[in-house]
């Protein structure tokens, strides 16, 4: 799967968080959706809603039923993410793509174990306090701790703190 969309999404989300936006959108793709759901599981975003070019109404973010995807409207579909803030600071303040299309970085399970403990492995710097690392595995996009629980390695997408 191409990962440039992930890289773009990371940059966009970091910009949106710095601009203190409450709701932002990324292009609708399976990869983006899986990453957004992984972030949601990690508590980094407050809501993941599929929608069109206009944002869904805030009161129905969790219950919004988007119109069915057709070949006519598929290009305009977006994933709307609710950003979180705590104590005057964004919960997700720094997003950094690790792999890029020209240099994909994968990590095996034993490498992920080291990284999760804070040690550097190859190109992969150790995790710091409160940092998350998202890995694309056979079981979908997982946070590093989920991957370790499920004992899978894979392509390292991005680190979020």
């Amino acid at each position: 799967m191409p990962i440039h969309a992930i890289t773009n999404s990371c940059a966009h989300l970091q910009n949106a968080a710095r601009a203190r936006l409450g709701l932002t959108s990324i292009p609708n793709s399976k990869y983006n959706l899986r990453l957004a759901l992984a972030m949601h599981r990690a508590g980094l975003v407050s809501s993941v809603t599929r929608g069109g070019p206009t944002p869904p109404p805030p009161e129905s973010l969790l219950t919004h039923e988007s119109e069915p995807v057709t070949t006519a409207n598929v290009a305009t579909r977006r994933i709307w993410l609710g950003l979180k803030y705590w104590g005057d600071k964004p919960v997700m303040s720094k997003l950094q793509a690790v792999s890029k299309p020209s240099r994909k970085i994968t990590a095996k399970i034993n490498e992920l174990e080291k990284v999760a403990r804070g040690f550097r492995v190859g190109h992969l710097k150790g995790l710091d306090l409160g940092e998350c690392l998202f890995v694309s595995t056979d079981l979908g996009v997982l946070e590093i701790r989920e991957a370790l629980e499920k004992k899978v390695g894979g392509l390292v997408l991005c680190r979020v703190s």
Binding site: G43, W86, D128, L129
Partner: peptide
């Protein structure tokens, strides 16, 4: 310095 407690509250997780 980062505050683990505020990170936990921000994410809704138990650290």
């Amino acid at each position: 310095q980062k505050d683990p407690e505020s990170i936990a509250i921000g994410r809704g997780k138990k650290l």
